[in-house]
């Protein structure tokens, strides 16, 4: 078995430990920044939906300011964000390198994207349902939780799939500035030392991650669609 691996993937065989550690680093970046981004993006997405004109708590200044900020961060290319956020990273996490240092730019790169996606998902809820809930005397928080979020669960899962898959891409890029993980692994060996089999194996591993996210998401969607 080892011989076969050695023959097909000569450069991977002697650094399986490093590969596994890279997968671990990528997973840490993905889950930690993913979870934080999920919570923040969900909150901002909700604010974007409820404060807009015709929403349940219309507030033009808040909506305009938040919309502008989200657009601003969405228009900064991630590589530039990585460099620009170094001081903030040091301030918040004490470091600008490694998986910890990558968290802040990953969150800044994901939250604006995800909050727009959440906004679209929540906008898909029929206004009639909100009106019905209002006529039953529900409060604004009640409507947000029991109607807006509840009725858009399949849509929210879909956008979470999209966002986490694009977040995997960002973790690979963050790796390039010293974040570690699979991106860093592929660049150091596959690219800089011309060990192409290392590049291929990272692609396969990432493909697996994408497939798992897609599959789990689809299961939950299926369970929540009636």
């Amino acid at each position: 078995m080892y011989e076969l691996v050695k023959k097909l993937l000569p450069h991977v065989a002697d650094k399986t430990d490093e590969l596994i550690y890279s997968v671990y680093q990528t997973l840490v970046m993905l889950t930690v920044s993913g979870l934080i981004s999920f919570v923040l993006g969900l909150l901002l997405g909700i604010v974007l939906v409820v404060t807009r004109e015709g929403g349940i708590l219309p507030h033009r200044p808040v909506n305009a300011a938040l919309g502008f900020t989200v657009n601003l961060f969405r228009s900064i290319p991630f590589v530039i964000l990585l460099a620009a956020l170094i001081p903030l990273s040091r301030l918040l996490t004490g470091t600008a390198i490694g998986t910890t240092g990558a968290m802040v730019p990953l969150i800044f790169g994901t939250v604006p994207f995800f909050s727009r996606q959440v906004e679209t998902a929540l906008s898909g809820v029929d206004h009639g349902l909100i009106e019905a809930a209002q006529s039953m005397g529900l409060s604004a928080p009640g409507i947000i939780v029991r109607v807006l979020l509840r009725e858009s669960i399949p849509q929210l899962i879909r956008v979470s799939q999209i966002t986490s898959i694009s977040l995997i891409g960002l973790t690979a890029m963050a790796g390039a500035i010293g974040g570690g993980g699979l991106g860093d692994f592929a660049i150091r060996y596959g690219h800089q030392r011309g060990q192409t089999d290392v590049t291929y194996i990272t692609v396969v591993v990432i493909l697996l991650m994408v497939a798992i996210i897609q599959h789990l998401g689809n299961l939950v969607i299926k369970k929540n669609t009636h």
Binding site: G128, S135, S139
Partner: peptide, 28 residues
């Protein structure tokens, strides 16, 4: 909001919660 409990409302397009069963819609 409390007073609205005394005023039921039905709509042209029914506005039932699609993710909830009939029973859960009525207890909503």
């Amino acid at each position: 909001r409390a007073a609205r409990l005394n005023i039921g409302m039905i709509f042209q397009h029914f506005n039932l919660m699609p993710s909830r069963t009939v029973l859960d819609n009525v207890t909503f």
